[in-house]
Each structure stands twice: as structure tokens, then as C-alpha cells.
């Protein structure tokens, strides 16, 4: 594991990354037994965050600015997923777990978030700054699908395409659920890929729980020369704990001791459910 932490970007082994994701899920479930957390949304985004930080070359000793670019967790309520993943990479000094959203001082992220619809604009500013600096830094913004209800996301989408910010990558955690139910019931997003294409973005769809596929997708996005890229990562809210999957009740949850034990059992039994 230690060897993998010092590996160049994208060269950690499949197994070590799968171990980080599995460990992050256990850590998250343990945390959920001590306080209410946004559990479902964190479980759905864990594999995405593992792939993003690996692809950007996260150095746990200097998590603030990964080697190849910056990360913004625009769906800031998944902060416990973020903490759990960063801890799995060996990052120390994570914020007080009472912090319910990433702060500007939180390791691993370029900006504090919490109010939805802010991250893509900030990412566009980071990407523009990288271009002005003449560099090749990327900005990766992880968005929730429910978050796409916010109009500011689409302001940013228009801006990034107009200015051809090819170094900007949005990853949509497409788990299909928002707080009150299915996204398609609350405010329909489909046809989502067509929307992004119409806004001038390169669109790549991927299995958001297949680490290897996600990393290939990110490299494809990083290679774009003129278009910003959105990765629509198809995920399952509550992923890894069958009784939580697809259930909005676990959007924000404080687990009972029984639920906690059952969740750990499910995670322990689940490796074969994880895509290789």
C-alpha cells in the first residue's frame, strides 16, 4: 500500500485502488454510526473520487494541489466520502468530522463548497488561470446529478465551452436520486448527455463504480484539445450496502448499531459485487 501511495499519476495498481475504495466505505459506515452523515451520496461518489485523485497524481504529503490539477467536490455534502477516500490515500490532517461540508482549508480540494451549483464556475476560473499561466493543469469538478437543477451550473457550462476550456473536466455522479426522490420525478434531467453536447461539451459515459474504466475515461478527457469534457458516471446511491442502495432514506442518515453491523457485514461480503 505504501508503495502505491508514492506512485506516479495513474500507476497505482488496480488492487491498491480497490483497497482504498473498500477501506473508504468501511470508514464512512463507521463514521455514520457516530453522527448523521450524507451517506448515500458519499457511497455513490467514492469510486469516482479514488479515480480522480489517482489520475491527478495526489501526493498525500501535499494534497492541496495534486500534481496534474485541482479538484473541487461541488456536491460538498459528500464530504465524508471525500475524507474517507483521502484518508485511504494516506492524507493526514483532515478536518474535524463535525465539518459537514468541505472548507477552503480542507485538504485535497481547491475550494470549500456546500451550496450547490458553485463548483463548476470555480473550476472554470482555475482552468482559465492555468491557460493564462501557459500550463497544462487540469481542473476536475465532481458534481451531483441533483445539483444540475441549479442554473449556475449551466452558466458555467456555456462559459467553459465558449472559451474552449479543454482542461476542465466535470464528473457527474449520476446516481439518479436527489433528496426527495428520483431526479426524473423531481426535475427531469434526461436527455442529460444530449444537454451537455448541446452546450458544446465532449460527453463520455462510464460505469461510475468501475475504477479502471473511470481512469481510462479521465485520461481521454485530459487529452481533449478544444472541448471541456463531462464524464457522466453512472452510479448507485448507497453503493456497496444492498439495503441502502437506491433508497432515499439513506441520503442523510445516522446508523443504528444494528444497521452499522449489517452494513459492515454487507461490505465484507461484497468484493465480488465490486467491478474488477
Amino acid at each position: 500500500m505504501v508503495e502505491s501511495l508514492t506512485s506516479p499519476p495513474g500507476t497505482r495498481s488496480e488492487q491498491s485502488l480497490a483497497d482504498i475504495a473498500a477501506g473508504a466505505r468501511r470508514r464512512l459506515v463507521d463514521l455514520s454510526a457516530t453522527r448523521p452523515v450524507h451517506l448515500g451520496a458519499s457511497l455513490s461518489v467514492i469510486d469516482i473520487l479514488v479515480a480522480v485523485y489517482d489520475a491527478l497524481g495526489l501526493d498525500p504529503a501535499r494534497p492541496r494541489r495534486p500534481e496534474r490539477g485541482d479538484v473541487i467536490l461541488s456536491k460538498g455534502h459528500a464530504v465524508w466520502g471525500l475524507y474517507s477516500v483521502l484518508a485511504g490515500f494516506g492524507v493526514e490532517g483532515l478536518d474535524d468530522p463535525r465539518a459537514g461540508h468541505p472548507l477552503d482549508t480542507t485538504p485535497g480540494v481547491a475550494a470549500g463548497t456546500g451550496a450547490l451549483g458553485h463548483g463548476l464556475s470555480i473550476g472554470a476560473g482555475l482552468a482559465l488561470a492555468a491557460r493564462l499561466d501557459g500550463g497544462d493543469r487540469k481542473a476536475v469538478v465532481v458534481l451531483g446529478d441533483g445539483e444540475l437543477d441549479e442554473g449556475s451550473v449551466w452558466e458555467a457550462a456555456m462559459f467553459a465551452a465558449h472559451h474552449a476550456l479543454a482542461n476542465l473536466v466535470a464528473v457527474v455522479d449520476r446516481n439518479g436520486l436527489q433528496q426527495e426522490g428520483p431526479t426524473e420525478s423531481v426535475l427531469a434531467l434526461e436527455p442529460l448527455a444530449a444537454k451537455w453536447r448541446a452546450f458544446g461539451w465532449q460527453v463520455i459515459e462510464a460505469d461510475g463504480h468501475d475504477g479502471a474504466a473511470l481512469r481510462r475515461t479521465l485520461e481521454e478527457a485530459f487529452a481533449s484539445e478544444d472541448l471541456p469534457t463531462v464524464v457522466i458516471a453512472h452510479t448507485v446511491k448507497g453503493r456497496g450496502v444492498p439495503f441502502m442502495e437506491h433508497d432515499p432514506a439513506f441520503h442523510h442518515a445516522h446508523l443504528t448499531s444494528h444497521q452499522h453491523a449489517a452494513a459492515l457485514t454487507a461490505l465484507a461480503a461484497g468484493p465480488e459485487q465490486e467491478p474488477a
Binding site: A111, G117, S121, A124, G125
Partner: peptide, 19 residues
């Protein structure tokens, strides 16, 4: 453009990168 929320978000990103 006529998009003030994005205007300020972009400013935030630029400033975070040292501008």
C-alpha cells in the same frame, strides 16, 4: 456574459490560482 453567478465563481477560481 450576462451571468453574474458564474462571473463571480470564475473570479473565485482565478483568484485561487493566484490572480
Amino acid at each position: 456574459g450576462i451571468a453574474e453567478a458564474n462571473l463571480v465563481g470564475v473570479a473565485s477560481g482565478l483568484a485561487r490560482a493566484g490572480r
